[in-house]
Write a protein that binds this DNA or RNA. Structure first.
Lengths: 255, 255
DNA sequence: TCCTGTAATATGTCGGAGTAATTAAGGGAT
DNA sequence: ATCCCTTAATTACTCCGACATATTACAGGA
């Protein structure tokens, strides 16, 4: 480099890094924690679209963190389409239709507070569209290995019930196996994002009340249709599965 | 502040901000440009999943930018699930299934180079699933205002052909109006992301050859079904529309 | 084979210079 | 006298380099 930096100095910081608060809650890093905090505030409606956040310096002082940490947090939010920073104008919250609502982290923030019931219905509607179609595709493209994984997941679901974590993991494995069998990466990513968020509500559900009916036979019906290579039956059976989940979750949220 | 900063120094930067290269191509900011460059490199397969990027210092020197700019770019890529940074281990490219493929920017990067034909087919398949379902929902939920916007878009499409930019804008308006009429934000965001990327291929298509058939009557059929409140007919008509677009694009890409 | 020490690397932090854009004020023309 | 255009100043973001710290991979010894 060609800048004649004076070698003599103990310039820079004297307090260094470590002193920061133990605020390492959700995010794995400091800026991650700030991004989480701000993201949740935005998703929960504390900031209206078009609203201006506190300035860089003011906010950093307010939270007693460095400007860099705040900046990197804003960078994350910008990447997800939640805010936009412009010189002089400050950092503004973008309108909702610019938000990247399918981002796993944004979804998590949306569900962290009290999730908007309308948005939950939207997501379930999307799931009700996509998952049956995925089952339909899987019925025509699955191979023996896919079927083996699905069968193993079903066995695990039967062994542990859905009330246990192992059982829910098996449920996720089952759905993931179907998505994998579609040989469609876009489909896989989409449902993975939604599924990760909706599982939060599933935990709510598990806590609130017992399952209304045994879901195993419905899963078996989906498997049988896929194994038989019957697209129509697979889509129909999966539709039943999603409808049940929706009605169950909706009734839980209403009370 | 309570740090006893020694007053004597001309520390910090002496060149300040402006001197940077004119590399301000795609991204609106310097770190945005770097994120764009790295993102395109990853999406185009230059880095294999699990591969390690150059170290922070090495890379920053290589590109002759500060570490901050590189760090903020990495922050963006991390937010989109493309890479993960861990101390000592370096910054590694994550496996493809962790990528946030539905992020508009990631989608743009994927289509910036030579788009992977399999991924394009995946996206069209997803569109073929979602858009007819959207038309089905729109048929039951649309109001007079929605229908007016659709009608205006159709008129504009007839006036200008699809060979003009105005005509393509009208086409986008038509589809957006349908998505709006579903009253489902998740659906809206999803198709907006995909649509923005796929329009790139549409431009390819326009360049390669003339449209194989007049698409206006097919659009009118969709409109009529939605206006009549017939969900099944709306979904079917929209299915025809998407199939035509897929087969048209596929045949263009194969040669 | 397991454990521990060392080295390497990313993370967190800081303050400062520079730039861009919004806002306000002033002068000119109608 | 009112309105519009030009100009200047304020303000907040952008980028920079340096330093301190914590975590982790790796290698050497028990």
């Amino acid at each position: 480099m060609e800048q004649g930096k004076p070698p003599e100095n103990g310039a820079g910081a004297d307090n260094g890094g470590g002193a920061a608060k133990p605020a390492r809650g959700p995010g794995r890093r400091l800026h991650g924690a700030i991004a989480h905090k701000l993201g949740m505030a935005i998703l929960s409606g504390q900031y209206q679209p078009g609203d201006t956040l506190s300035g860089e310096v003011a906010f950093a002082e307010e939270l007693e963190v460095s400007r860099s940490a705040y900046r990197e947090a804003i960078q994350v939010l910008t990447a997800k389409g939640l805010v936009e920073s412009r010189p002089k104008a400050g950092t503004r919250v973008l309108p909702r239709n610019r938000w990247n609502l399918l981002d796993p982290e944004v979804l998590a923030w949306a569900f962290a507070g009290e999730p908007d019931i309308q948005f939950v219905r939207d997501l379930f509607e999307l799931r009700a569209i996509v998952e049956p179609a995925a089952a339909r595709l899987a019925a025509t493209r699955r191979d023996k290995e896919d079927l083996r994984i699905m069968k193993d997941a079903l066995t695990a679901m039967r062994r542990h019930t859905l009330a246990t974590e192992a059982g829910r993991a098996a449920d996720r494995d089952f759905h993931n196996a179907i998505l994998n069998a579609t040989r469609n990466d876009a489909l896989l990513v989409l449902t993975a994002s939604i599924g990760a968020a909706v599982n939060w509500t599933t935990q709510f559900k598990q806590r609130a009340r017992a399952l209304p009916r045994n879901p195993i036979p419905d899963h078996v019906r989906v498997y049988d249709a896929i194994a038989a290579g019957d697209p129509v039956a697979a889509a129909e059976a999966m539709g039943v599965l999603v409808d049940l989940a929706l009605e169950d979750t909706a009734s839980t949220m209403e009370r």
